[in-house]
């Protein structure tokens, strides 16, 4: 079972993501801020991280940077799921090595498709 980490500080969004990912048969981890996320990444080494940007303590950018700069985790896929929708912000996200940048509000079908594609689930 592939591991998915969901990071967001909005409980309702987490709830919806959790439902969607479980439905696809992934093993779901949940983090409410960047710090928590880093711990889970360290311990569980998930295949994919769906990451919000604006969070208390450690933000999404930091988490992405950590994943992509660390040899142990650099293969982990990163999807930014953020309300930040300016072009410059999206570019910045990709520059950090993110595999995908989606803006809120998002289409559930598209998100599922993108996650599946990234994890090459047939």
């Amino acid at each position: 079972m592939k591991k998915v980490l969901l990071v967001d500080d909005e409980p309702n969004i987490l709830l919806s993501l959790e439902f969607l990912m479980k439905k696809q048969g992934y093993y779901v981890f949940i983090a409410r801020d960047g710090k928590e996320a880093l711990t889970i990444i360290h311990q569980e080494n998930p295949e994919i991280v769906i990451l919000d940007i604006m969070m208390p303590e450690v933000d999404g950018y930091e988490v992405c940077r950590y994943i992509k700069n660390n040899t142990l985790t650099q293969d982990t896929k990163v999807i930014f799921l953020s309300a930040k929708a300016k072009e410059s912000e999206i570019e910045f996200g990709y520059a950090l090595g993110a595999d995908l940048y989606l803006t809120k509000p998002f289409s559930t079908r598209n998100l599922i498709k993108q996650v599946n594609d990234l994890l090459e689930v047939v």
């Binding site: 969004i13 809120k104 509000p105």
Partner: peptide, 9 residues
């Protein structure tokens, strides 16, 4: 965007 995201999802 935050509430809309939840609503839409």
């Amino acid at each position: 965007r935050t509430p809309i995201t939840s609503i839409r999802a």
